[in-house]
Design a protein around this nucleic acid. Structure first.
Lengths: 265, 265
DNA sequence: TACTTCTTCGTACACCGTACAGAATTAGTG
DNA sequence: CACTAATTCTGTACGGTGTACGAAGAAGTA
């Protein structure tokens, strides 16, 4: 017996066929629209994070009783799916430049900017990667950016995943620091100053020559410049170098290692 | 007024100074050890995910009352921090090969394997990236792998982040599919078959030339081979190409500095 | 023995998502 | 018009969560 189609797909694509969207329904009109609900949820999640987005809280902010939300949206999970697609739709996809490197950079940067504007996007990725209209548009746009390098279909897809995944990781690292600072009430620097003594005492006996040196350099650079944009710059340049070299067919190729036992448990 | 040092740091490094670990305490002995609690939590999270790890559930599995756990661990968040470090400590860090490419590959693969063995590691990364002993050991090991390429301290750190971040992303993508399948009760293929009709109807009017073609190719390749290992392979090769090219100080379109042996294919 | 300190545990609170039933409101039907 | 059916809105309730708090008991010290 086959499965039923997913009802929330129609909700995701609710703007696709606006002709007969509302074929005159019986009961009272809805006070709000789904878009208004989702927009309010986005606003709330932007301000206070996905954890702080509760059905009761959102309903209260909208002047509704808690359960009323369920006439707009089947569940909190579905709401989040709608939020993702709606947030993606807010940024207009810029025109793609001609130069390949610029195109790939742009794919990563757009993703990075969105993940900074809506940090909860990174947490929401845990739910099903459903195809909403804006997600579909964006995927098509991303593929267009990578298309024409001479890669195969699979490699094109993997390149997109590589770029947006990396951009998301940079955003995630920033978000983690902000989150920790917000909830511990002290900055990264204050935390370190408060714990350096304890940590040094605990780590006595162990030696971390590289980690000590590198960690210090990273800490200084981070708090001095304060721009994790540099981090984006570096990794992005490496990735694009590698992709372009591969596309040009000039990258050195090696056999993958034997899959079993490159290290023991 | 300066901040107090973080109490859970001592808990993280509880094995660091075992001499005077227990300076004769008064009340009854604890029935369990912190390690046993954390191990049970890891086991539970491995089996059912981080969401299913509740204090009551864990306590029940250990034969304790719920609140008793709080004599071992200050809070659920701290427990997760301990879980992360303890899980990291379970995999012995393999010896690093000589060839640079193999070293970088190994860094990514170890991370990938761990993220597959403990999928909740990816969710747990949301909490503070605290320095536990095993995390510190691993960081040092990762830096050692990248060291010697001629990169600066910052770039070395960023390269590590690039590799492990990528590996985590691949694992995350797999986990997402598994999670969706588990909770929807149908496989990716079944879902598609059930929703292809609806989706096609909804997407009428829009055209996704690339996404359609690529998506189909990806879907076939994915379900046919079932190996996301290929995805790891591809991105990893690009990243390492880019990093090594950069380390060699040569722009992407230059020859690599003739390693002793590499065969082209 | 009495005191102190620690572990264990039951209860309680605030919050969460949401199932359910009833009241109010509107559109279609006679 | 009245009547019915569908739909929105709402309050209450259930089972779940993390954890604050206080009581009870055990083990060490005086």
């Amino acid at each position: 017996m086959p499965h039923d189609p997913d009802p929330s797909l129609r909700l995701l694509w609710r703007h696709a066929a606006p002709e007969q969207e509302r074929p005159r329904r019986r009961g009272p009109k809805q006070r709000l629209t789904v878009d208004e609900v989702v927009d309010a949820a986005i606003e709330l999640a932007d301000a206070e994070g996905l954890d702080a987005l509760s059905m009761r809280g959102l309903a209260g902010r909208l002047g509704l009783a808690a359960m009323t939300l369920y006439t707009y949206v089947p569940s909190r999970k579905d709401l989040i799916v709608l939020m993702v697609d709606q947030a993606l739709g807010r940024t207009a996809l810029p025109e793609l430049p001609d130069e390949p490197r610029r195109r790939l950079e742009l794919v990563a940067r757009v993703e990075y900017d969105d993940c900074r504007a809506h940090p909860w996007l990174l947490d929401a990725a845990g739910v099903r990667p459903w195809l909403g209209p804006n997600a579909a548009d964006r995927y098509e746009w991303q593929l267009t950016a990578v298309d024409g390098l001479g890669l195969g279909d699979l490699e094109t897809d993997q390149t997109v995943a590589l770029l947006v995944g990396f951009a998301g990781n940079i955003a995630r690292a920033e978000q983690r620091v902000r989150h920790a600072e917000h909830e511990s009430g002290m900055t990264e620097r204050e935390w370190w100053e408060a714990n350096a003594g304890t940590l040094g005492e605990l780590m006595a006996g162990r030696s971390y020559p590289l980690a000590g040196r590198v960690g210090q350099a990273v800490g200084e650079a981070y708090q001095a410049a304060g721009d994790p944009a540099r981090e984006l710059e570096f990794g992005l340049a490496r990735i694009i170098d590698g992709v372009l070299a591969h596309a040009a067919g000039t990258a050195p190729r090696h056999e993958p290692p034997a899959p079993e036992s490159y290290h023991q448990r």
